[in-house]
């Protein structure tokens, strides 16, 4: 028997079908938790973020539709910003947590094509020069803008812009080249 598609499961959520949420959770919980953990760098906070994200899906399934692209990407976008919001809240109460690069872990659920595609991106990210990787980390995983990164790192604003643009351009080109 084939498992129900994301579209079918989301439609069932609108009928308040708890089994549909469980199915989505089992399909995507590791993806969501992994990204949340990458952003907040704290297991307990990552759990809270994961729970918030799935409750958002439960409470507002209509927020996603097929036209918005694949469900998992939408879910991860929500995860990233929920985690960044949570991180900002935590920062106001605690010292910033050290950045721990855990690249190289094996994916837990590899059934998703996008995840498989990102397999190639992960080492490319790790191979960036440290100064470029750091600005990508601050911008993407911590949600900081150009000027916020400059303020945080003490680097000139122009340097931050150049580093981020160079890093992202390099990542995109190398990622595309590997697919050819």
């Amino acid at each position: 028997m084939t498992s129900p598609s994301d579209v079918e499961l989301i439609a069932r959520l609108a009928q308040r079908d708890q089994a549909a949420l469980t199915a989505l959770y089992e399909r995507y919980a590791n993806l969501v938790y992994s990204l949340a953990l990458r952003v907040v760098q704290d297991g307990r906070l990552a759990e809270e973020v994961t729970q918030d994200v799935f409750m958002e899906v439960w409470n507002r399934p209509e927020r996603w539709d097929v036209q918005k692209g694949r469900f998992s990407s939408w879910l991860l976008t929500v995860t990233r910003y929920t985690a960044i919001d949570r991180l900002r809240g935590e920062r106001s109460r605690a010292e910033e947590m050290p950045y721990e690069d855990a690249l190289g872990h094996q994916p837990g659920d590899d059934s998703l094509s996008a995840w498989a595609e990102a397999e190639a991106l992960r080492p490319l990210l790790a191979q960036l020069p440290p100064e470029q990787r750091h600005v990508v980390d601050l911008a993407f995983f911590q949600g900081l803008t150009h000027s916020q990164i400059a303020e945080k790192t003490g680097l000139p604003l122009g340097t931050v812009k150049t580093r981020l643009r160079t890093a992202l351009t390099r990542l995109r080109e190398q990622w595309e080249d590997r697919g050819e």
């Binding site: 919980a29 590791n30 993806l31 938790y33 952003v39 998992s72 094996q106 837990g108 992960r122």
Partner: peptide, 10 residues
Amino acid sequence: LHYAAPSAQA
């Protein structure tokens, strides 16, 4: 990049 986080088990 959203999928590029190191894998962890929920």
